[in-house]
Nucleic acid binder design. Structure first.
Lengths: 151, 151
DNA sequence: TTCATTGCAAAATATTTGCACTAAC
DNA sequence: GTTAGTGCAAATATTTTGCAATGAA
């Protein structure tokens, strides 16, 4: 999988969308958008806060959370809960996630859309009408697969 | 899908496994196992605590959590995180979960094992070696599908 | 009797909220 | 100048931990 846009292109697109929605482009939002754009590491609010603290010593958690919530409402980031904390993902295309047993990394994995046959099967057998799907795989990421010794 | 065992049969099996593992059958464990066996509602620790409080006014949260953890270690219950709280599931067979957009219910849905072809495709394209899979579907449960008016 | 288990309280973790102040527009 | 957005502190929600007392085997 290759990135369609560079990180800065994506940041510009995200900022444009915020502006278009009539939202203010504060330095904090600038920084959070730039930190997140093109970052495939799925950081938590905590991690983003710590990453930005040097540049914005007075920025609060509430700002990080509220900015991430704003971005999520605008459809510019996705969020996934893995363990206790929510992680944020600038990749809003349909995809799944893999959590590495060895290093804990969260990686993006391709998703094929669920077939109508599968959706219809579930509805017929259980009555549940599927609208969306989230998958988490557990296993070993590419890097850790190469090091069989690792726990 | 039909239950293979009645709730009390499942409770007996769970208690037998605890005993076999050399663990003590305290009244609290008895009650938690019986509350959980055959319960497909995926209760949280909070919900179990409140359900059992009338019968065990002095029982603490720590006991509920530690018992659920014990059951999980013994492989007698599964746990899934949906939103802030962890939910517990006496169904340890491979299955997926559906969360109803309308009523919030968490229902069990059948799972087909991932094919080797799919696993191999992911490994080849991304390097990630899949060991296990968790799926959450969003949509409408059977009951809520019948009431289109509901939010 | 023994030691796993319980109950209680405090701590830890992640997130949300209220409100006065600030700054983007 | 307006008012959305920020910072701070306190509140909330969930889970974990330490430790003395209890009770199942």
């Amino acid at each position: 999988m290759e990135a369609t846009h560079s990180a800065s292109e994506q940041a510009q697109a995200m900022l444009g969308q915020l502006k278009r929605a009539g939202l203010r482009l504060t330095p904090q939002r600038l920084a959070i958008v730039e930190a997140l754009a093109g970052d495939a590491s799925h950081p938590t609010a905590q991690e983003l806060f710590e990453r930005l603290r040097p540049a914005f010593p007075t920025m609060s958690f509430a700002t990080v959370y509220s900015t991430l919530d704003t971005l999520a409402v605008q459809g510019l980031v996705g969020s996934l809960r893995l363990g206790a904390a929510v992680r944020f993902d600038p990749n809003v295309a349909a995809h799944h996630h893999g959590v590495c047993d060895a290093c804990g990394a969260v990686v993006d994995l391709p998703a094929l859309p669920l077939s109508h046959v599968e959706i219809e099967d579930v509805r017929r057998t259980s009555g549940f009408a599927i609208r969306a799907e989230e998958r988490t795989y557990r296993g070993r990421c590419g890097l850790c697969s190469e090091e069989p010794g690792k726990t």
